[in-house]
Every structure is written in C-alpha cells, then in structure tokens.
Simulated assay, not measured.
Amino acid sequence: MPLHRLRTYAAVAVIAFAALPARAQTPMDDPLDARDARRVDRMEKVVRELRDIVFKAQRTGAPVVVQPADTDARMGELSQRIGDLEQSLTRINGSLETTTHELELARRENEALKAQVKELGDRLAVAEKAATPPAPPEPPAEEAAVKRPPQEAFTAARQLMLAGDYDGAEQAFAAYVQDYPEGPRLAEARYWWGKTLSVRSAHAQAATAYIGAIRGWPQTAWAPDAVVELARSLVALKKPADACQALAELPKRYPKAPAAVSSRAAAARTQAKCAAA
C-alpha cells in the first residue's frame, strides 16, 4: 500500500477519533448502546494499527505489507494443507494402481513359468524313459532252473533273427546280455540286439546297445557296421553332432571297412549334414 495513502487514512482516522470525545460531551438523551460501543472499539483498534504502520514506514522507509487477519491466514494455511493432502492422495492412488498392475503381470508370468517348467519336466521324463534300455524279458519258468551254455544261447538267438523272428531274437539277445555279462560274445550280442531294436525304430535303446557293442573299438567284421548303425540311430534321435563324431572315427578305427559299409556311412554323413573332412 503506498505510503501517502496510508498517511491520509491515518489522518482521517485520527480526526474522526478526536471528534469522538467532543461529541461525547454533548448532552444526549441516551448513553451509547452496546453496539455503538463495539463500533468505537473497532475504530480505535484500526486507528492504532494505522498509526503503527505509518510510524514504521517513516522509521524504516521500507514498503509496508499489511498482513491478513490471523483467522484468514490460518484458513489459507489450512486450505493449502488440504490441497497438499489431495495431491498426495492422488499420487498414492496412482502408485497403488501401478503396483496392482505390476503384481497382476507378475502373477501371470509366474503361472506361465510354472506351465513351462511342467512341460519341460514332462519332456524330460519322456526322454529319460525312451533312453532307458528295456529290461530283458524273464526267462520261462522251465528254463530258469537250467541255463543254456553261452554259445548255444547265442546261436539260438541268431537263428531266430535269420528266420525273420525279430521279436523273438530281441528277447533272446537281451536274455544273453543279462545272463552272460562276461560271455565270450557279449559285444556281438549287443550289436545284434541293437539291430532288432532298430527294426522297430527303438532308436534310443538301439543306440545304447551299439555303444556297448563298440566299446573298446573291437577289431571284428561286424564292428564297422555297428558304428554306422550307431550314427543312424543318433540322426534319428536328432543328435547330428554326435552322429558326425562317430562317423569321423570310422575311417580311423576301421580303414579297411567293406565298401557297402563305407557307402552307408557316406549316406549317414549326408543325412547328418556333417562337415567335409
């Protein structure tokens, strides 16, 4: 508020206030009522405040700022606090909505992950079951008491295979492997057992049988063919890298392999997409 205007207001108020005692000395029919008394008190208060403002301005020369009434200040402060609280509540509500959305996404991702884990577990169970060689069949009760000599048992199994009875030959060679773990023709029995398994596309069990047959790289007539059959089983199991590794050993271990075996090995290399040697 400009200083000259404050001075004018203060002068007017002083003149008005100075006139009050003279009027009070004028005889009146009735004394001032309570309402007039309150009005006079308020005017006195205003005059005192104006005088203080003017004197302060004269002493300091600084601009005078008239503060609002205490009640108005508190109401303004309260309104400001309420506004701040409303803004805080709005931010909290927004944060809660975001957190709820993120929790829902996490729950869905967790459920999807559980489903994937279950699916992988089922696949592993199937793969492990497929890779486990079948248990050799139990021998008939009448044969359990007396076993054939190893050579006789091997010859009987081979005759079943030559006759085209692959199911019977599979059981007979499996029984030989079980009954004669130290038999003189154990490795060859595993090789022929793998052949019977390959006939019915039991590639995982056949691969296990072939691996047992060529362990130690025996120098026999059937060993090169066993390597090729192992590679073909691995290709069927979608393991081309392992198949190529087995085929790479063929010329090293059996450089004099028959031409028919070498031809089938070349076809297996093409099937497995082996790199050129």
Rank of each mutant, 00 (worst) to 15 (best):
V54R: 04
R35M: 08
R48I: 15
V40I: 15
D30Q: 14
Q25L: 15
A22C: 07
D52T: 15
T26W: 11
L50F: 03
A19D: 07
V64L: 02
R59S: 12
L20F: 10
A57I: 03
D70A: 14
T26D: 06
V65G: 02
V66T: 06
D70G: 05
K56I: 05
K56C: 01
A19S: 10
D41Y: 03
A22R: 05
P68E: 12
R38V: 11
A62L: 10
P27W: 11
D30Y: 14
P21L: 12
D70N: 03
D52F: 11
V46T: 13
M28G: 14
R39M: 09
A37I: 13
P31F: 11
R38P: 00
L20Y: 11
K56Y: 12
R51Q: 13
A18Q: 11
D30T: 11
D33M: 02
Q67D: 10
M28Y: 01
T26Y: 10
D41M: 11
P27C: 05
D30N: 08
P21V: 07
V65A: 07
I53Y: 01
I53D: 10
A22Y: 03
A34F: 06
D33K: 02
D72I: 05
R51A: 11
I53S: 09
D33V: 02
E49A: 15
A62S: 08
R51F: 12
L20W: 09
Q25M: 14
R35A: 14
K45N: 08
V54F: 03
F55D: 15
R42Y: 07
D30W: 10
M43H: 08
V47T: 15
V66H: 01
M28N: 08
Q58D: 15
G61T: 01
A24G: 05
V40G: 02
A18H: 05
P27Y: 12
A34Q: 08
A73P: 00
L50S: 02
D52A: 15
V54Y: 07
R23Q: 12
R23Y: 14
A22W: 12
F55P: 00
E44D: 03
R51C: 09
E44V: 09
T60Q: 03
A18I: 10
A73K: 05
R39F: 09
T60I: 02
A24Q: 12
P31L: 07
V66G: 01
L32N: 02
A37L: 14
P68N: 04
D29C: 02
D29N: 08
D70I: 04
D72T: 06
R48L: 13
D33G: 06
P63Q: 01
A34R: 06
A69Q: 06
P63V: 00
P21N: 03
M43N: 04
A62W: 00
R59Q: 12
D36E: 14
